[in-house]
C-alpha cells in the first residue's frame, strides 16, 4: 500500500514537472520579448531574467513612426476584409457542398483540397501579373485578393463539415413550405452557423494577420506595408545594429491582441483547427 502511494506521488511529481517545463518552453520567448520591450536602450545589452524596469521609450518610439501605425491600419483593414469575403463566399459554397448532392461535388472538394496545399511561391509570378493587371500592386486590394488563396479553401472546408452535421429536418420543413435555396440558407442555416463562422473567421483573421510572403512581394512603399513586413524591415544604422528594443515593442503590440483572442476563444480555435483536419 505504501509503495503504491509512493508510486502515485512520484507520478504526480513527474507530471507537474513536465507541465512546468512545457509551460516555460511555450511562454518564455514571449515573456522575454515583453521584458526586453520595457528596457531603456542603455540596459538592453544586459541579460535579465526578470522585469527590471518599466520604460515606455521603445513603445513611444515605435508608435511615433507613422509607417508603423499605418501598417497596423493596413493589417486590420486587410484581415477584416479577407474574413468578410471568405465567410461570404464560404457560407454559400458550404451550403452547396454540405447539403446538396450533385454530380461534380467530389471534384469540387478535391479542387479545394488541392488549392489549400498549394505552395504560395508556385503562384507568385502569375499572381503578380494578375495583381498588376488589376492595378492593385502596392495596394491593400492586392493583398485582400491574394489572401483568399489560403483563407477560402480552409473556410469552405470547415464550414462544409459543420453544415453536414446540422439535422436535415430543418431543411425539409423549409422545402415543404416552398422556400427557395437562398431563403433556406439565409433564414434557416445562417442563424445556426454563427458559432462555426466565428471560429473560421477567427482562424482566417489570424492567418491573414500573420501572412508574410505576399505582403512582402506585392507592396513597395512603407505606407502600404502590413505589420509582419514592417517588423521584418525595421533596421538600424547597420545590419549588425538592429534596434532590438523597438522591434520587441512592435512585436508585443501586434501579438498581444492575438494572445488575448486565443485566451478567450481557445475552445473555438481548437475545435476549428481539428474540424479542418480530423473530421474531414
Amino acid at each position: 500500500m505504501n509503495r503504491y502511494r509512493l508510486a502515485r506521488l512520484l507520478r504526480r511529481v513527474v507530471l507537474w514537472a513536465l507541465i512546468l517545463v512545457v509551460m516555460f518552453y511555450a511562454i518564455f520567448p514571449f515573456y522575454y520579448a515583453v521584458i526586453t520591450s520595457f528596457k531603456p536602450s542603455s540596459e538592453l545589452f544586459r541579460v535579465d531574467y526578470w522585469l527590471t524596469s518599466l520604460d515606455l521609450g521603445n513603445y513611444a518610439q515605435i508608435l511615433s513612426q507613422r509607417s508603423f501605425v499605418q501598417a497596423i491600419g493596413n493589417s486590420i483593414l486587410i484581415a477584416v476584409s479577407v474574413v468578410a469575403i471568405a465567410l461570404l463566399l464560404g457560407v454559400t459554397a458550404s451550403y452547396s457542398l454540405g447539403r446538396v448532392r450533385f454530380r461534380g461535388r467530389t471534384a469540387v472538394m478535391l479542387i479545394i483540397l488541392g488549392v489549400s496545399m498549394f505552395p504560395q511561391v508556385a503562384v507568385l509570378s502569375g499572381l503578380f501579373e494578375v495583381i498588376r493587371a488589376l492595378d492593385l500592386y502596392n495596394h491593400p486590394g492586392g493583398l485582400i485578393l491574394s489572401y483568399t488563396i489560403f483563407t477560402l479553401p480552409f473556410t469552405v472546408w470547415v464550414l462544409t463539415t459543420f453544415m453536414r452535421q446540422l439535422p436535415m429536418e430543418l431543411e425539409e420543413a423549409a422545402i415543404m413550405d416552398g422556400a427557395t435555396p437562398w431563403v433556406t440558407l439565409t433564414r434557416v442555416f445562417l442563424p445556426l452557423m454563427w458559432p462555426a463562422m466565428a471560429t473560421t473567421g477567427l482562424l482566417a483573421f489570424i492567418a491573414a494577420w500573420n501572412e508574410f510572403l505576399f505582403a512582402l512581394t506585392f507592396t513597395l512603399t512603407d505606407s502600404q506595408r502590413t505589420v509582419p513586413v514592417a517588423i521584418a524591415l525595421i533596421s538600424g544604422g547597420s545590419q549588425h545594429e538592429l534596434p532590438w528594443g523597438p522591434i520587441m515593442a512592435a512585436s508585443v503590440i501586434v501579438t498581444v491582441p492575438l494572445v488575448v483572442l486565443v485566451m478567450i476563444f481557445q475552445k473555438r480555435i481548437v475545435s476549428g483547427l481539428t474540424a479542418g483536419a480530423v473530421k474531414g
Binding site: A26, P29, F30, A33, I206, W209, N210, F212, V227, P228, V229, I231, A232, S251, V254, T255, L258, V259, L261, V262
Partner: peptide
C-alpha cells in the same frame, strides 16, 4: 506559440 506571427 501557434498564435504568434511567424515573423514575430
Amino acid at each position: 506559440p501557434w498564435a504568434i506571427p511567424t515573423i514575430v
